[in-house]
C-alpha cells in the first residue's frame, strides 16, 4: 500500500514529523516483563506501532553435545516476523533478512551476556515481531534483553537502542515507517549505556562525517531515555510497600 503512495513530506512547515513528533522525540514505549508462563523469561516491548514479544529458555544442557563450546554458552537466537506483522502477509519461512538480523542480534547479546559463566550450556532466545513499523531489530534486541533480565541470566548491562535517520535532510530520532522508507539514511545503534559500549551499529544510506557525529549524540540521548524506562519497568515489579 505504502509503495503505491507518492513520496510524502516528512517534515512539515512547523518542523514536525508525519506522526506529529519533534525531530528529537521518541515514540511512546511500553515494556512488560514475564508475559509468558512456559518460558524461563519473557517480555513484550512496544515502541510506537512496533510490537515484539521475546522468550528466553536456559541456560540448559546443549544438544547435540558436539555443538557445545567448552569455554562459554552457545547462544541460539531467532528473530522472526509473524505473517500478520506487515500490511501484506509475510511468508512465515525465515527470509534472508531475518537470518541476517538473527545473527546481528545474537552478536549484540553475546557481548552483553556473561556467557563464560555457563560453559557447555546453551541459551535459546526467540523474538516474534507481532507488528512491524520500523525499528524492529532494535525493539527485538531490547525485548530479548528484558526477557534475559526476567530469566535472571547474568549480563553486563541492559541493552537500549534507537535508530537515527535523515528525513528531508533533517536528523530525526527513532524513525517511523514512512521515514524509514523515504528518508535519506537509517542508522540503528544499540548500547550498554552504563558501560558506555556499543553492541550494534549499522548504517543504511549516506551521512557526512559531521552528520554522523550529530546523529550519534542524538542516539545517545534517546538511548539514555529508553534505558531509564527499561529500569523502571523492571523495578516496578518489585515495589517496596510500607
Amino acid at each position: 500500500m505504502l509503495a503505491a503512495q507518492q513520496r510524502p513530506r516528512l517534515i512539515d512547515e512547523r518542523g514536525l514529523r508525519t506522526d506529529g513528533r519533534r525531530p528529537d522525540e521518541l515514540r511512546p514505549i511500553r515494556i512488560e516483563l514475564g508475559v509468558l508462563k512456559n518460558a524461563d523469561g519473557s517480555a513484550i516491548f512496544e515502541m510506537g506501532n512496533t510490537k515484539v514479544i521475546a522468550a528466553v529458555y536456559g541456560p540448559k544442557e546443549m544438544h547435540p553435545r558436539h555443538m557445545a563450546l567448552p569455554d562459554r554458552t552457545v547462544l541460539r537466537v531467532r528473530y522472526h516476523m509473524t505473517p500478520f506483522s506487515t500490511d501484506e502477509r509475510k511468508n512465515p519461512a525465515p527470509s534472508r533478512r531475518e537470518i541476517e538480523l538473527s545473527k546481528v542480534i545474537r552478536e549484540a547479546l553475546e557481548s552483553a551476556i556473561l556467557t563464560e559463566l555457563f560453559p557447555r550450556a546453551t541459551i535459546d532466545v526467540f523474538m516474534e515481531v507481532l507488528q512491524a513499523d520500523a525499528g524492529t531489530r532494535l525493539v527485538s534486541l531490547m525485548a530479548a534483553s528484558m526477557a534475559l533480565a526476567d530469566a535472571g541470566i547474568p549480563m553486563r548491562d541492559l541493552i537500549a537502542g534507537v535508530a537515527v535517520g535523515k528525513a528531508d535532510e533533517v536528523l530525526v530520532l527513532d524513525l517511523n515507517e514512512a521515514e524509514d522508507m523515504w528518508g535519506g539514511a537509517d542508522m540503528p545503534i544499540a548500547m550498554m549505556p552504563s558501560l558506555n559500549k556499543v553492541v550494534l551499529f549499522q548504517l543504511n544510506g549516506t551521512m557526512t562525517p559531521e552528520e554522523l557525529r550529530q546523529a550519534l549524540e542524538l542516539a545517545k540521548k534517546g538511548i539514555a531515555e529508553i534505558y531509564q524506562l527499561e529500569k523502571k519497568a523492571i523495578k516496578e515489579k518489585f515495589v517496596e510497600v510500607s
Binding site: 533480565a149 530469566a151 535472571g152 547474568p154 552504563s194 523492571i234
Partner: peptide, 25 residues
C-alpha cells in the same frame, strides 16, 4: 562493580552481595 541480574543488595560491614530476585536455574 556492577550488578549482573535483577536482585536485592545486601550491604553489611563494608561489603555487599546481590541476592537475585529472578532465575529458574
Amino acid at each position: 562493580y556492577y550488578a549482573s541480574v535483577v536482585g536485592v543488595v545486601d550491604v553489611k560491614n563494608g561489603t555487599f552481595t546481590v541476592v537475585p530476585l529472578k532465575g529458574s536455574k
